[in-house]
Amino acid sequence: MTIPKKRRSRYNPTSEDFHKEDFPFYWLARVYGRYSMAMEKRLKKVDLDIPRWRILNILHENGESSISEISVHAIAKLSTVTKTVYRMKEDGLVETSQSSLDGRVTQVAITDKGQQVFHDMHEVTDELFHQSFEGLTEAQIRKLNQVLAKIFDNLPES
């Protein structure tokens, strides 16, 4: 059941009866901000940051990926991902190669060192994941993901 537009006014920042605590993006921003700060603190222990964490997760799950594919999944600018990938290459975490199908495309793969760092980063962040979702059931987490995916799909790409 969707909320009629009239009843959505208190959630809309342009409404006279708006309160920030009723705005879903207020809570999304607060949750993400707190999560990011906690993640950065933990990732420092293994000499990583969130952009590198994202890229390692994407490569671990997807295997070899193009820089463009990584950019889409990380929801980051192509230029930013490109810089991060080449810094990771210098650190020995990833390797790059030219696509055999299209010479303009750079493929990225995780190295053995990158796999080890992937495991190390999950050791230092695992507790945060469990702490974040304490008191929620699997069904609640699944529903949360469904709601967030719907909002994501409703938003324009740029």
Rank of each mutant, 00 (worst) to 15 (best):
M1S: 11
I3D: 06
I3L: 14
P4M: 02
K6D: 12
R8D: 02
R10N: 11
R10F: 11
Y11G: 00
N12T: 00
P13T: 02
P13G: 04
T14G: 02
E16K: 15
D17F: 04
F18K: 01
F18I: 03
F18T: 01
H19T: 05
K20R: 05
D22K: 15
F23Q: 05
F23K: 01
F23E: 13
F25A: 00
Y26V: 06
W27G: 00
A29L: 11
R34F: 04
Y35G: 07
Y35Q: 08
S36P: 00
M39A: 09
K41I: 03
R42Q: 14
R42P: 08
L43D: 03
K44A: 14
V46G: 00
V46R: 09
V46M: 07
L48M: 08
D49H: 10
P51T: 06
R52N: 04
R54Q: 10
R54E: 09
I55E: 11
L56Y: 08
L56S: 03
L59M: 05
H60S: 10
H60A: 11
E61C: 02
E61M: 11
N62G: 13
S65K: 07
I67T: 15
S68R: 04
S68P: 00
E69T: 12
I70E: 08
I70W: 05
S71W: 13
S71L: 03
A74Q: 04
I75H: 13
S79Q: 14
S79C: 01
T80E: 14
V81F: 07
T82Q: 09
T82A: 08
T82K: 05
K83P: 00
V85P: 07
Y86F: 09
R87Y: 02
R87A: 11
M88E: 12
D91W: 13
G92L: 07
L93R: 02
V94G: 02
T96W: 05
S97W: 02
S99R: 08
S99E: 04
S100V: 10
D102I: 09
G103W: 06
R104G: 10
V108E: 12
T111R: 06
G114L: 07
V117F: 04
V117E: 12
F118C: 11
F118I: 07
D120Q: 15
M121H: 13
E123W: 00
E123N: 08
T125W: 01
T125Y: 04
D126N: 08
H130I: 07
F133K: 10
G135K: 01
L136T: 08
L136K: 13
L136E: 08
E138L: 06
A139E: 14
Q140Y: 06
I141E: 03
I141W: 01
L144T: 14
L148F: 05
K150G: 09
I151V: 13
I151W: 09
F152D: 09
F152C: 10
N154I: 00
L155C: 03
E157K: 15
S158C: 08
S158H: 11
S158Y: 12
